[in-house]
Design a protein around this nucleic acid. Structure first.
Lengths: 199, 199
DNA sequence: ACCTGAACACCGTTCAAGT
DNA sequence: ACCTGAACACCGTTCAAGT
């Protein structure tokens, strides 16, 4: 009589399911509402089950942050089309970055809220630095091509990252209003940056 | 025999005491550990008392964010000494901003986590925009003096704010490591910005 | 090896009751 | 008008017990 599909006792792939449920949740509300019990509920599992896969809530959060950086990395490298000039690639990458933040505000917030534990912080920072390296590579290419001034690339890459990160956060928070900050604040901010970089 | 000083039943100034206890807490740990009951405990009051002064936790948090922006505004204007050139003032203000963030990381985080409610968000954004206005004023002066290019100031002010905000967050999170980003990442980022602004 | 259910100590919020 | 204490529904985490 019972037509219900019975879930197997061993889920098999619970770790991945937990991460995906968690990512879904971060799309639906702000990251500070994030609840381990709700993640378990969505994964169709008891509230104690996640503890077989993550030592605590913070561990899951920092895993999500890592996944976020990986996703961002994919978006960034996908934006770097070969037929574009270095300057165009820089602009395109910046816009992809900002778009990612606005598409995943809660996740993006998490990525920079340093909720990670001591051990995880190292791995998390590695992923963050990978983002920086995309920019560093672009700037080095620009210098080789003579488009950009010959300056320590690392400093300039830091400047690019800070600017783009700042634009992302401000636009996520609705603080880049056209009335207050000009018609196309992002374009003009990037234009100013490029003028600072150009040879 | 009892020498204890008895607290009056009516606290008198509980609202201010709550805010100050809360600010103390934000100095001691990360903002996501913030607990209303702990604030009440530190204020020496029952855990229900705060509800006579704030409708809910979020309301207190966004009040703290407002206070944070006001504190930041004080730091910024204090940094603007008259005998400095516009460029120097811009650098000095940026460094004061970054210093503020590193001195109050949990508070700074809160200021930009948009935990505020609908109504409060307006007032909060007003304070945030006040920060932007300090930069806008500086850029306008720079243009009048012929030091900076004649560009829509609002766009450039947005760029400055984004860069400084980004540098603040990255340095708060320990992501501006000398090994990865050059010796003095903040100085060189600001130098690049100035070159973009200069006439 | 992986999951459940009950249990513990907490939290946000409400509300009758006290001063 | 302002505060307390008990109460409710939640949460993170643990642990014996189940499969």
């Amino acid at each position: 009589m019972e037509e219900q599909i019975v879930q197997p006792y061993h889920h098999g792939d619970l770790r991945r399911v937990l991460i995906e449920s968690a990512l879904d949740m971060l799309h639906e509300f702000k990251s500070w509402q994030f609840t381990l019990r709700e993640v378990a509920r969505r994964a169709g599992v008891s509230h104690a089950a996640p503890y077989r896969h993550f030592p605590d809530k913070v561990a899951l959060l920092s895993e999500l942050a890592k996944v976020g950086f990986d996703m961002l990395g994919v978006e960034l490298t996908a934006a770097l089309l070969d037929h574009l000039s270095v300057e165009e690639q820089l602009v395109v990458a910046a816009k992809a970055y900002i778009k990612f933040g606005n598409a995943n505000p809660a996740l993006y917030h998490l990525m920079f809220s340093s909720d990670a534990g001591e051990q995880d912080e190292v791995h998390l920072n590695e992923r963050a630095i990978a983002t920086l390296n995309v920019l560093t590579t672009l700037l080095e290419r620009g210098q080789k091509e003579g488009v950009f001034k010959n300056r320590p690339v690392h400093g300039n890459a830091g400047a690019c990252w800070a600017l783009v990160h700042g634009l992302t956060m401000l636009s996520m928070n609705g603080l880049l209003l056209p009335e207050k900050v000009g018609d196309k604040p992002i374009d003009s901010a990037l234009a100013t940056l490029l003028e600072g970089l150009r040879a």
